[in-house]
Design a protein around this nucleic acid. Structure first.
Length: 148
DNA sequence: TTTCTTACA
DNA sequence: TGTAAGGA
């Protein structure tokens, strides 16, 4: 099938499908016209990719573990080494969450204190000095970081 | 019409 | 990720 049909059957935009291919997650043959031709199993493959992305895994991680993926969910069986890598990343995620919670509390305390005094600084501080907010939607986990 | 690549926010 | 240009 071509990319349009795969898009319809998976609910994933063609742009994203090309992106998955560029990331090495999805294979496609090329017809004489240069159009991508997908195998029937690409439908399942795309659904697996969506699920794993939803779990916060990076493209790199997914490329690594897709061969272990079974079914749509997908189940990741028969990969003890993969399981170990994911456990270590889960641990790091917990650590990060703890650190974030600490930062959050400290910040909330500052805000609370500032609001309590009701006074303003002189000269007034520039909001722009705080810099841009961190990008949203960035992968939380990365296998690359897991193996030094 | 559909898909392609490339580029940009 | 989303959107767009310009061709085949």
């Amino acid at each position: 099938m071509r990319i349009g049909e795969l898009s319809r059957r998976t609910g994933v935009h063609t742009h994203q499908l090309r992106y998955y291919e560029a990331q090495g997650l999805l294979e496609a043959d090329r017809g004489a016209n240069g159009y991508r031709e997908y195998e029937e199993n690409a439908v399942l493959r795309v659904k697996q990719i969506r699920h794993l992305l939803g779990a916060g895994l990076s493209s790199e991680d997914i490329e690594y573990l897709l061969p272990c993926a079974l079914g749509e969910a997908p189940e990741l069986l028969g990969c003890p080494e993969l399981l170990a890598a994911m456990r270590s990343r889960l641990q790091r995620l917990d650590d990060q969450m703890a650190a974030l919670a600490q930062s959050r509390d400290a910040l909330a305390t500052y805000i609370d204190g500032a609001e309590r005094t009701g006074r303003e600084s002189y000269p007034p501080c520039d909001e722009a000095d705080l810099g841009p907010a961190p990008a949203q939607g960035a992968p939380v986990l990365s296998l690359a970081q897991a193996s030094p």
